[in-house]
Amino acid sequence: MKKIGLISLAVALFLSMFAMGAQAASRTGNLTITGSSALLPLMLQAKKEFNKSNPRVKIAVSGISSIVGPQAVKRGTAQIGTCDWDASTSVPGFKAFPGQVAHKVAAIPFAFVVHKDNPVNNITQQQAIGIYRGEITNWSQLGGNNAPIVVNNRSFGSGTRVNVIAKGLNGATGLLSSGTNYVERASSGAMKTGVESNVNAIGYIDLVYVTGNLKALSFNGVVASPRNVINKTYPIWAFGYMMTQGQPTGTTKAFIDYVQSKKFQNGSVKSLKFIPIAAIK
């Protein structure tokens, strides 16, 4: 009998005394998922939907930073590590995690973001590089208010950071790492909070977080949207991955299969502003 904390167990009604003797047929067990905060909204939604057909699987989802995903899998802390790059191969800044297998989740559009009251609506790649190098320091240099630019960056280990530097800043080096108007954010949630609470801030984040007081800037005149990623006019995006130690089995495999299913890809992946794997040609 389960323990129910706040309520009393008045009646335990058994339609049969043999109820507990039946063989459990569906998937069971615990599944822990951690890593990319960019993929956190998608993983939370997948958990809800997967549990509708698999009520006996207990799923714990969290998100902090991409590098944590494969590391948690390596340590055995999580069965699935989410990461904004394929951690089974080396990418700039990070060596491969041997023995891990990458499973695509969706394509993630990223955007440079500002407070919604910031009058600037567009940023060019050169302007973005200038800002993150500390060479452009005032919004008036972008046609905005005469106010200092507060640069928000993600901490080292962030997959969003890896992809925005590679595609938004064209792999630029010599970027800011400290300063009066420079802040590093540990997660997408912290980035959102930081930028939407400061009208002079700039940062970057994946599109699903662009709500409330956050505004996505067009990049080189192209609106940040799934549609423009698919038609190849908007370049700042990457595939997100679920990492496993070796090939997944059992409940872990079933969860990954669900995330990659047509139902989830054409459903929640789209509605949460991610891009289905198959849409990227």
Binding site: M1, K2, I4, L6, I7, S8, L9, A10, V11, A12, L13, F14, L15, S16, M17, F18, A19, M20, G21, A22, Q23, A24, A25, S26, T28, G29, S53, P55, R56
Partner: peptide
């Protein structure tokens, strides 16, 4: 793993559990 899902019926502070014999509720 052998425990079967049950229907928990709550009203106010009272809870009762309804078990379908030999049935795993999906």
């Amino acid at each position: 793993d052998e425990s079967l899902p049950t229907l928990s019926i709550v009203k106010g502070t009272n809870l009762r559990t309804l078990v379908l014999a030999n049935v795993e509720i999906v």
